[in-house]
Design a protein around this nucleic acid. Structure first.
Length: 307
DNA sequence: CGGAGTAAAAGGCACTT
DNA sequence: AAGTGACTTTTACTCCG
């Protein structure tokens, strides 16, 4: 899912003018050399993007698009206050009274239940977290929809709003291939990680979400650019990682540890001196884990890297 | 300091009770 | 919801160049 970006003229690394938006990783990359120019970009693209085909086909319908960030999807029609009717004619007192009654009932029907109120609060929470983490707008929208679904299926009761908000955001990231770790999302709110994990799993089951397992390769770009490693190294890390995958050195392990080790391996191979401590800090595992994965992959793939 | 290595404690996961 | 077991990660430490 790559789209051209107009805002940036040329790649600072190779000078190419083909600058692309990588929605999968929410970053701006060079279309020629692959250099990550900006990571963590906010949603700057068109409104209609990562939605599924169904919704794409539905774009031609009249009226404003549904907005999941509003509790009623922004679909309601307000009955205007005042003394004029829809055609601009002055209403007589009887009609005025009727209009007043209608407004009153409409208000009641628009936001009444405690569920609706809870959803509104949660959506505010979700947008806050998403903007704090610079997640693309589609994530916020999808998260709001998931929260609504969860509410409908009575999956919220007994859980904290913050916890569910964090869980739906994480679920959206997983669903839409935006590589963010649970830890990264958990940093934004004081939620218990154990609870967040449990909530995420309950949600995934309860809402029948089809969430594929994490592919560590998707994190290489992000962590590579956090560590300021150049494109060659990042590319090589992916190669190593893919080979490690074939040798079953990835499943069952913490993906962040594996990614860290691959970046370390690739960097060292290219003569770049980067401490394991720095890698460990970036991917948020201990040095020991980086070391263990490093040793394992180095041995099994016969990379022969000696530090 | 940066790294190698290890034992023991703690944690996470799949699965059962 | 709590327990179990195989497995991974962390903690905390020693040793090396």
């Amino acid at each position: 899912m790559l789209e051209p970006v107009e805002d940036i003229d040329e790649c600072p690394s190779c000078g190419s003018e083909r600058i692309l938006m990588d929605y999968e990783r929410s970053s701006i990359i060079c279309g020629k050399c692959g250099k990550v120019i900006t990571d963590n970009v906010k949603d700057i693209g068109p409104e209609w993007r990562a939605f599924d085909q169904e919704e794409k086909n539905d774009k031609s319908r009249g009226g404003p698009p549904m907005n999941p960030m509003l509790h009623d999807m922004g679909l309601s029609t307000k009955i205007k206050k005042g003394t004029y009717d829809g055609k601009g004619k002055i209403m007589n007192p009887d009609q005025k009274r009727k209009a007043h009654q209608l407004r009153k009932w409409q208000k009641r029907s628009r936001q009444t239940s405690s569920k609706d109120r809870s959803v509104s609060f949660a959506i505010t929470e979700i947008s806050k977290i998403c903007s704090q983490l610079s997640l693309p707008g589609v994530i916020a929208k999808n998260s709001a929809n998931l929260y609504r679904e969860a509410s409908k299926n009575n999956l919220i009761r007994g859980r904290s709003r913050e916890g569910v908000a964090a869980a739906v955001i994480y679920a959206s990231c997983r669903l839409m291939d935006v590589p963010r770790t649970m830890e990264e999302i958990a940093t934004t709110s004081p939620v218990d990680r154990k609870e967040m994990r449990r909530t995420f799993q309950t949600l995934a089951r309860g809402l029948d979400l089809d969430i594929p397992p994490v592919d560590p390769v998707k994190f290489v770009n992000r962590f590579g650019s956090i560590l300021d490693l150049d494109h060659e190294v990042v590319k090589r890390s992916k190669e190593i990682l893919n080979k490690a995958k074939e040798k079953r050195l990835v499943t069952g392990r913490n993906p962040r540890g594996v990614v860290g080790a691959c970046l370390y391996l690739a960097a060292t191979e290219n003569g770049i001196d980067i401490p394991q401590t720095e890698i460990a800090r970036a991917v948020n595992v201990t040095e020991v884990t980086v070391r263990n994965r490093f040793r394992e992959i180095n041995d099994e793939l016969n990379l022969g890297i000696d530090v």
